Amino acid sequence: MKFTDPCLRSEGADVILATSSDEKYPPENIIDGRSETFWTTTGMFPQEFIISFPKCVTISKLTIQCYLVQTLRIEKSVSKDPVDFEECIEKELQCKEGELQTEEFSLPEIQATYLRFIILSAFDAFVSVHRVIAEGIAEDI
């Protein structure tokens, strides 16, 4: 077992679904490890994206860096395919004009092969997600 950030492309994470896409701000930016790059939504809500892991991970804390997100729900799945999601947390975020929202979620050591992030509402017509950071352990199979 090793402690790692499983939400990095370099650790094998992938964004397998995003409800909107702009070629200048692709969803892969969420997992590149940089706060300067981001994925942006295009229009209506809810919007969502799903991060997949190459193997089951145990996560004790999630941090999301985003902008203008109002209500966020995070769900997990341990299925082989991205189905059977269970809600982990839903939270109203505070708007910080002109600066990134950095929200930390402490979790009771959830296991996941997929995480789904659903942006239910926003403070503006567009939001951006810059990074998802997880504190977790990748299970050795």
Rank of each mutant, 00 (worst) to 15 (best):
A138Q: 15
K55W: 00
W39K: 09
P108S: 15
E104F: 00
I30A: 04
F85M: 03
G136N: 04
I141G: 03
K61L: 07
A122R: 08
I89D: 07
F126M: 05
K2N: 13
I118S: 12
A125V: 13
D22F: 01
P82V: 05
A138M: 15
E103V: 14
F38Q: 01
F105P: 02
L72C: 12
N29V: 06
F3W: 07
V129Q: 02
E90R: 07
I51P: 02
P6M: 03
T63M: 12
Q111P: 00
F49D: 08
A122W: 08
D14G: 01
R131W: 05
I16N: 12
I74P: 10
E135M: 06
P27T: 04
T113V: 08
F117W: 13
I31E: 06
S52A: 14
F105L: 06
L107P: 05
F45P: 06
I50K: 02
P54S: 03
T37N: 14
R73M: 12
I64Y: 03
L68Y: 08
L72R: 03
F38V: 01
F85I: 05
K76Q: 09
Y25K: 05
F49A: 07
S60D: 15
K24V: 02
T4K: 02
F45G: 09
D84A: 02
Q65E: 15
F123I: 02
F126C: 00
D84H: 12
R116Q: 06
F117D: 04
D14S: 09
T71I: 09
A13M: 14
F53C: 02
M1T: 05
K24R: 13
G98H: 01
D32G: 10
F53H: 11
E139L: 15
I16Q: 04
E28K: 12
F126V: 09
R116A: 08
E87S: 14
S52L: 01
P82S: 06
S60Q: 14
C66V: 01
P6V: 03
S20M: 06
G98A: 00
R9G: 09
I137K: 07
Q65V: 14
Q47I: 02
I133Y: 05
P82G: 06
D5E: 12
T113W: 01
C95S: 11
I137D: 02
E11C: 11
S121V: 00
E97D: 06
A138C: 13
L115Q: 10
E48K: 10
D5P: 01
L100S: 01
L115T: 06
G136V: 07
E28G: 13
L93A: 12
T113K: 15
S77E: 02
W39A: 09
G33R: 02
V69Y: 01
I110M: 15
F117T: 08
L68I: 00
E99A: 00
C7G: 14
I50A: 09
L107C: 08
K61M: 08
R34I: 10
Q65R: 13
E109C: 08
Y114P: 01
A138K: 11
M44Q: 12
K55L: 00
K91Q: 11
P108W: 05
I118A: 09
K2L: 04
E11I: 01
G12Y: 11
D32S: 11
S77R: 05
G98F: 02
V69G: 07
A122T: 09
L100W: 04
G43W: 14
D22K: 11
I133H: 04
R131T: 13
L93F: 11
I89T: 13
M44E: 13
P6H: 14
V83I: 14
T37Y: 14
